[in-house]
Amino acid sequence: MGLITEKLPLYLDPVPGSSWFLGKLDEVINWSRANSLWPLTFGTSCCAIEVMMAAGASRHDVARFGAEVARPSPRQADLLVVAGTIVKRMAPRLRTLYEQMAEPRYVIATGSCVISGGPFIYHSYSTLRGLDGVVPVDVYVPGCPPRPEAYFYGILTLQKLIKEGETVRRPGERRKPVLAALPAGMTVDQIQEEMRSLLVTEKNSGDRRNG
């Protein structure tokens, strides 16, 4: 990878048509990176239940987006999912894990605790008010905790970010952090309606099974 990103643009730039070639190379590299995000799951509290366990389990199935290979080791991961409250004593450990990850590395901050301190913002002697002082964050996923759908939207947002990047010419470039909320126009009623229809089909299939 280092050979391609460091040496290749230098040699290819004088050649006519090279920018087209480099663009295609970008596309291929970005496509493979975006679709095989291996998350290092850093779950310290309730967000981990939604984001790591429910999203990984069969109903929501994060494998559809290529991010199901949860790694317990930072050296094999390229996406740090911080799910849960970060306290003062945890912050240096989190920073260490981030430093141990290989480039390119991305960070998703899920839940209000990581974004701003959440319910612990006042009168807390230990909770950090926001993760951005510890590690640079790419995508924020709001919620307390966010539903797996919101986490998927965060992953899709990150994939979009990665696919827009110029990997070969500007490899280490960081983009501005993004807030991944549900699309505009989506209402709570629609979500509840969808959940209700899901539950109804589940109930019917359960009835079929039983009788």
Partner: peptide, 23 residues
């Protein structure tokens, strides 16, 4: 649980420190 050089006892109702934010 806290650092060895921590001053004060944080779950006391009258505990205050520089890090803490007042509502």
């Amino acid at each position: 649980l806290l650092e060895d050089d921590w001053q004060g006892f944080p779950l006391r109702k009258d505990y205050k420190d520089d890090f803490m934010l007042e509502k």
